[in-house]
Structure formats: C-alpha cells, structure tokens
C-alpha cells in the first residue's frame, strides 16, 4: 500500500508549489493512474514516493511505514521504477541493464540469468537476439520495454511507471498497453502509473487521479469520473479535448 497525506512540494522555498496538498492512497494490487498535462507535478509525485525528492511537507507511507524511516537504498530496491527518460545505462548490455537490481541484491548469477530471460520474453524481446546488445542498438520502443523489464527484475512489491509508453507510435503503444494489462493480471503489483494520455489512463487505471497545476482535481474510478466530474477542469477535460472517444 502507498499512502500520501497532505503532500506539498516547492522547489523555490515556498514561492510556488509543484505539488499542493496532495492526499491519496493506492491499495495493495491496485493500479492508480496519475493523469495530468505537462508540468502538473506527476513526476515529482513519483520521485517523492521513492525519495529521489523529499516533500516540503506531509507524510508518505509505503507498506504502512513512513518512507523517511526507511534506508533510502532499501526502499528503492523494493520499488521498481520505470523512468520517464528511460534511463538505461548506456555502457551496459540489455542483459546487464535488466540484471542490475538483482545483482545489487546479491542474487546468484544463475537465478539472475534465469530471471533476465524470463523478463525479456515477457516484454517481447527474446534474450537470444537482444541480451548482448547495447541500449543504443535498440529502437526507442524496445528501450522502453527494457526499462519495464528492469523495473520488474527483482520482483518488487511496488511499481512506479512514469509515462513508460510516452514516445511511442499509436500501434506499438497499444501493443504495450495490452502487455501491461496482461502483466497486471499475472503479477498483482501495486502500481502508480503516470500518463498525460486520457485514453491510456482509462484503459489501465483501476482508479484515476487527475492533477492540475499541482492540485488534485478528482480521484476515483473511470465510472466516478465520467459520471460525476468533481470540477469544471475535469468536465472540460472529457468534453472539450476528447469528444466522443470515451463512451
């Protein structure tokens, strides 16, 4: 379980807030989508969960324990993170990239290898032809899939995914979204998924949180949001921008 209580984050000493009074919780095995336009504080929220950024104010709990009480390294190793900019290590092969967290955790070489093969198969990049390549020898979409495999490698309880399908064409994106839905069923992870794509949010999220300029506009299931938009912003979002696509 992940729980945020009255989180504020300011990068400029209080003059402006990237995140304002954000409270939300993600249940065990649930997928919460953070939806919002560019610069609304989605990445900032994710980074605060694994302590890459510390909140100015408020409490974040992971698994019922304040993140500030964790050793940050331990905390991060329990949380799989798919970075917005992919963030693969350019000097490591795909194999090494996927194996890195198990390696940090001290798994044996055999179990690491096994896991790596399993995961590359899962994301549709068979180890035989991809394991020995370097990130720059892969297409952007393939790299994003490796990013997902890396995040899953150590079998983390939690998964933070920051626009994992951001820079993809519609076709590949749909394929990957389907893969993720399958994964979700198989893996039963607690996932926070960031996107600015309405369609993706509705497809993937068990619940959706809509952010706007650091404020939480509404949080709820697809049905809640479509039926009873809480604010004008939410209403506009669904009527003006994407008319007709959501029924």
């Amino acid at each position: 379980m992940i729980k945020l209580t009255h989180i504020f984050k300011s990068f400029d000493g209080g003059r402006s807030y990237a995140v304002k009074d954000l409270s939300l919780s993600v249940g065990k095995g649930e997928t919460l989508v953070l939806l919002g336009s560019s610069g609304c504080g989605k990445t900032t929220t994710l980074k605060m969960i694994n302590r890459l950024i510390e909140p100015t104010q408020g409490i974040i709990e992971v698994g019922g324990k304040d993140v500030m009480d964790y050793d940050p390294v331990d905390l991060r190793r329990q949380i799989g993170y798919v970075f917005q900019g992919i963030g693969l290590f350019p000097h490591m092969t795909i194999e090494q990239n996927v194996e890195i967290v198990p390696r940090l955790l001290g798994w044996s070489i055999r179990s690491r290898q096994e896991r790596m093969r399993e995961l590359l198969d899962l994301v549709g990049l068979p180890a035989e032809s991809f394991a020995q390549r370097f990130p720059d020898e892969l297409s952007g979409g393939q790299q994003q899939r490796v990013g997902v495999a890396r995040a899953l490698a150590a079998n983390p309880t939690y998964l933070l995914m920051d626009e994992p399908f951001g820079a993809l064409d519609a076709l590949t994106r749909e394929a990957l979204q389907q893969e993720l839905l399958n994964l979700k069923k198989q893996l039963k992870k607690t996932i926070v998924f960031v996107t600015h794509d309405l369609h993706e949010a509705l497809l993937i999220g068990d619940r959706i949180a809509i952010l706007h300029e650091g404020n939480l506009e509404q949080i709820g299931t697809k049905k809640d949001i479509l039926d009873t938009p809480a604010t004008q912003f939410v209403q506009d979002l669904f009527t003006i921008k994407r008319p007709g696509t959501l029924t």
Binding site: L52, V73, D74, R77, F83, G85, G87, F89, I100
Partner: peptide
C-alpha cells in the same frame, strides 16, 4: 538522467 536512474534503482553512492 542516467545518474538519477542509478540512484532510483537503489545503488549506494559508491556503487
């Protein structure tokens, strides 16, 4: 970006 990834997946500083 790469360094943030290194930190984010749980590498210690010397790692």
């Amino acid at each position: 970006e790469v360094m943030e990834a290194a930190q984010g997946i749980g590498m210690k500083e010397y790692q």
